[in-house]
Design a protein around this nucleic acid. Structure first.
Length: 561
RNA sequence: UGGGCUGUAGCCAAGGGGUAAGGCAACGGACUUUGACUCCGUCAUUCCGUAGGUUCAAAUCCUGCCAGCCCAGCCA
């Protein structure tokens, strides 16, 4: 009892409108007084889940959790023309990855086909549905318009005739498109969804689960409320474009004898700037090989983000913090990145790494000497332990950590300047060597033996600390870099297909991917972080062939004063 | 032109009659063995889409207007 009060209080504290509705519903005198909150996430298995779905998942599962209720996972597979088991598996994997569980409450809309059929016959018998013989073109012509009502010459067909026709539809006596079952509601409604909507269509096709058993399939508007009700859903949360469908949802609930009367509540779907979120467009990218697959790191799919280095926690936190409302909103991509950084900063193991190497030679360090240093894996979390890195006369450092002629405000390596090699020594730059083209090939410096461990016993201040790897022991690894590009035009603008070319791909997905070579101080860790870079775990990684991603979301370089 | 929904800062977003939370971004500064992180400060001097009205008092209530989004699939 006290738990329920706490749940309600928490909900009200977090304060989104869905929570408020549910609170009213479960409160004394409410529509679902005393009932356990029960939600569902009902994807159609026709594509991979993307960050937009993550919002819905967090709302569906999160809301149930908040109220001490439960959530189902249901494949909304009522249209065999687009669906495939590949997606069924991927969807489950991605939701699990996000950290949500549905226990044994995993369902398919197709499991309810027999019941839906019975209910449909019942509707016909009640005089609430009829078989219509308008073909798609005629149906369109007879749809009416904003001010004119729709018409159907078959509307007043006798019940027995509709029943007979409907049964023959089911038995496969008619071709696709020949006839439909329509709900008899209101041909003059200002809401087109109520103009005698089609609730069953003929489709001679192999369904990924029911095979050839059916050749008629229920439409979403008819099927969804039934699915929800049969599962005992209390709150059917969906996106804003279904607001117009709610009257139909309620119509179905009210005219069929169902075990529950779920309430549909709509919320705004997620938009992120410079990010393609349309399933259709993402599919186009995949099918035409513009990307390597649904899990290409440039894709905003959950599996793509996973390869880009996003953590489940960061995505869940993002969804939590963007809030839930009914305004169409476009969240800035930088906010997603912020949520990632926050998580990574706290939890990621660091590894020093050099992406674009230049050799550093410590001219006063013995030729054959090698020292070991213990480095913390995560300064924020000492309990994550340390690793050993070797150090010797020749090291790799980042090209951009040296400037022969420093610009104003630069405080890393330049002739005469002191810099700390993280955890090892303070060094002073003495010069460099260049090739015929003027490119720096070697940087020279002298180390200060008194500063072992990077300490400054004399208390002198060292402004710059740079990463390095031992040239003798550093492990090479292939890296994929991705850069977020925000100076690009709106990817949604213009003709999508026309704009599609390899060069514009970065525009479409907000980032580009480039291969690069990295040498890191540790081959066991696939996560490292340094100034300006986030390099993270990647599914493609193997100990022999690690792959990192770099995010440029941190402030790169330095600020000029 | 019919129906549905929405307008609070550059971007999200609380607040539902009593004098505009928070986060992101941005900009200052401190600190720092990652130019990161962290910390401090500045960011709607009652233009909360707009015009009126009610009220001692309105972002909150009322009316009109304006703007944006969704709907005429046998998609979901």
């Amino acid at each position: 009892m006290s738990d329920e009060i706490t749940a309600a209080e928490e909900a009200s504290a977090s304060g989104n409108f869905i929570d408020s509705f549910i609170e009213e519903d479960i409160a004394p005198g409410g529509r679902f007084e005393g009932e356990k909150v029960h939600t569902r996430f009902p994807p159609e298995p026709n594509g991979y889940l993307h960050i937009g779905h993550a919002k819905a998942i967090c709302i569906d599962f999160g809301t149930a959790e908040k109220f001490g209720g439960i959530a189902n996972l249901r494949m909304d597979d009522t249209n065999p023309t687009k669906e495939d088991t590949e997606y069924v598996d991927a969807i489950q994997e991605d939701i699990k990855w996000l950290g949500f569980t549905w226990d044994d409450r995993f369902y398919y809309a197709s499991d309810y086909f027999p019941k839906m059929y019975e209910f449909a016959e019942n509707l016909i018998q009640q005089g609430l549905a009829y078989v219509c013989e308008l073909d798609p073109e005629q149906m369109k012509e007879n749809r009416g318009d904003l001010t004119r009502p729709a018409v159907s010459p078959y509307r007043d067909r006798p019940v027995e005739e509709s029943l007979d026709l409907f049964r023959r539809m089911k038995n496969g006596e008619f071709e696709d498109g020949k006839m439909t079952l329509r709900a008899k509601i209101d041909l003059a409604s200002g809401n087109f969804n109520l103009r005698d909507p089609v609730i069953y269509r003929i489709n001679h096709m192999t369904h990924h689960r029911t095979g050839e058993t059916w050749c008629i399939y229920p439409m979403y508007d008819y099927a969804h409320p039934i699915e929800d009700a049969l599962e005992g859903i209390t709150h059917s949360l969906c996106s804003l474009e279904f607001e117009d469908h709610r009257p139909l949802y309620d119509w179905v609930i009210n005219h069929i004898n169902l075990p529950a009367k779920p309430r549909q509540i709509e919320f705004a779907r997620l938009g992120i700037n410079n990010t393609v979120m349309s399933k259709r467009k993402l599919r186009t990218l995949v099918e035409n090989n513009y990307v390597s697959g649904w899990d290409d790191p440039r894709m905003p799919t959950l599996c793509g983000l996973r390869r880009r280095g996003y953590t489940p926690a960061s995505i869940r936190n993002f969804c939590e913090r963007i809030g839930v409302a009914k305004v169409n909103s476009t969240v800035e991509y930088s906010f997603l990145e912020h949520c990632l950084r926050e998580d990574l900063n706290l939890n990621a193991e660091r590894t020093m790494a050099v992406l674009e190497p230049v050799k550093l030679i410590l001219t006063n360090y013995p030729e054959n000497k090698t020292e070991d240093f213990e480095v913390e894996n995560n300064p924020e979390r000492p309990e994550q332990g340390t690793r050993t890195v070797s150090f010797s006369r020749e090291l790799w450092i980042e090209k951009e950590d040296f400037m022969e002629e420093p610009v104003k405000g630069y405080f890393r390596l330049f002739p005469g300047n002191e810099v700390r090699l993280k955890t090892s020594y303070i060094i002073r730059c003495t010069g460099c060597k260049k090739d015929n083209n003027g490119n720096v090939t070697e940087v020279y410096a002298e180390y200060d033996p008194a500063t072992r461990g990077g300490n400054t016993p004399d208390g002198r201040k060292i402004k710059g600390t740079i990463h390095w790897t031992d040239a003798k022991t550093a492990a090479d690894a292939e890296v994929r870099l991705y850069d977020s590009l925000f100076t690009v035009p709106d990817p949604e603008a213009g003709d999508f297909l026309e704009e599609l070319n390899p060069d514009s791909l970065k525009v479409l997905t907000g980032c580009k991917v480039e291969p690069a070579l990295v040498n890191a101080d540790s081959s066991k860790s696939f996560q490292f972080m340094r100034q300006g870079y986030f390099c993270m775990d990647n599914r493609d990684s193997t100990p022999e062939h690690p792959v990192f991603n770099r995010s440029v979301s941190l402030k790169d370089g330095f600020k000029k004063k």
